[in-house]
């Protein structure tokens, strides 16, 4: 357990360094992405007023002071005021957070729930016609751009058939500060198409990964030996083979969960999903740097946390990685 704690501490330390670098990048954006003052004020604002606003927002201080002040603020949880809406950025993002997380989660669950069984099936029976269908579909999933799939879905299920809503989250229910769309019928109906669109790429990725890993593992000696011991096909395929494919699958799924959150931007735009991605896109249009940089930091934080969890999961799945070697001969 001591080794475990040391491992976690080391990873947390690495995570802090990553976050410092990201915060520096986020800060640098303030300097290089357009002039926020020009975006905030109208055409007829006088130069004096502009200068005063610039001074008031601290944009004239030396850059290193600005960074340290920014870092200090961020550590205290003050991410600044949105240039565009004049509201606190953290409040703004927290409002949008549930929508994005729910979308990413539903997409990830969908991708896993469909991708793993499809991968196992195509790995076990590579020559069956259904496997070929899965392979063909996955090729489409991996090569068609997200927005295109989204638009096709909207056209077919939204416009032609009229079964599913084409935009928004539907009705939401508040649980504390969290607003969920997963408890109402319209919310559930609304999430289907965006989650499918967002999860499609991950699904094909997971399916192809599980398939190639299964093909690999099924050739190993311990699978042959498991068969030679007379174990049932079920025990061999799911007890012995599938578990040995999990380490790479966990890695990819974990990393992809980060991507799902980060790259929900496109899906959120196509479906006008009121999440962080949409907020971010609007922020870009207005050079709303506090929102953009905070979004950057938040996404980086997600990646760091997910990576840490993934590393810990390896230890759960693969005993060889556990550092406690006291039993080893």
């Amino acid at each position: 357990m001591a080794a475990m704690a040391a491992f976690i501490l080391r990873r947390v330390f690495q995570a802090i360094i990553v976050m410092l670098v990201v915060s520096a990048l986020a800060f640098v954006m303030f300097k290089f992405v357009g002039d926020p003052i020009a975006q905030m004020v109208g055409q007829d604002t006088s130069l004096q007023d502009r200068a005063a606003l610039r001074e008031r927002l601290g944009l004239n201080d030396p850059i290193i002071f600005q960074y340290l002040r920014y870092l200090g603020d961020v550590i205290q949880g003050d991410f600044g005021i949105s240039f565009r809406t004049a509201r606190r950025v953290d409040v703004l993002l927290v409002e949008r957070l549930p929508a994005t997380l729910e979308l990413a989660l539903v997409a990830a669950v969908f991708a896993l729930a469909a991708g793993v069984p499809m991968g196992v099936y195509t790995g076990l029976y590579p020559d069956r016609w259904l496997s070929r269908v899965f392979q063909a579909v996955s090729l489409a999933g991996i090569s068609l751009p997200t927005f295109f799939i989204g638009i096709l879905l909207i056209l077919f299920f939204g416009v032609v058939l009229g079964w599913l809503p084409t935009f928004g989250r539907g009705e939401t229910v508040r649980i504390g500060w969290w607003s969920t769309g997963l408890l109402t019928l319209s919310g559930l109906k609304s999430v289907i198409m965006p989650a499918f669109t967002l999860g499609m790429f991950q699904l094909t990725l997971i399916m192809r990964l599980v398939r190639s890993e299964m093909l690999e593992v099924l050739r190993t000696d311990y699978i042959k030996f498991a068969r030679a011991r007379g174990l049932s096909n079920f025990a061999v395929h799911f007890g012995h083979a599938l578990k040995n494919t999990l380490v790479p699958v966990i890695t990819i799924t974990g990393l992809q969960l980060g991507s799902l959150i980060a790259f929900a931007i496109i899906t959120e735009t196509v479906f006008q999903w009121p999440g962080m991605g949409l907020l971010f896109l609007q922020a870009i249009q207005f050079a709303d740097i506090p929102v953009m940089s905070t979004y950057l930091i938040l996404v980086a934080a997600f990646f760091v946390v997910i990576n840490l969890v993934v590393d810990l999961l390896y230890y759960v799945v693969d005993p060889r990685l556990r550092l406690d070697r006291s039993l080893a001969t």
């Binding site: 000696d221 311990y222 042959k224 030996f225 030679a228 011991r229 578990k243 799945v317 693969d318 005993p319």
Partner: peptide, 18 residues
């Protein structure tokens, strides 16, 4: 397993590592 058992060449890879 029940009537005919088998032992393979490489013990390092015959057991499921997990």
């Amino acid at each position: 397993g029940k009537e005919i058992g088998a032992i393979f060449q490489d013990p390092l890879t015959s057991l499921n590592p997990l």
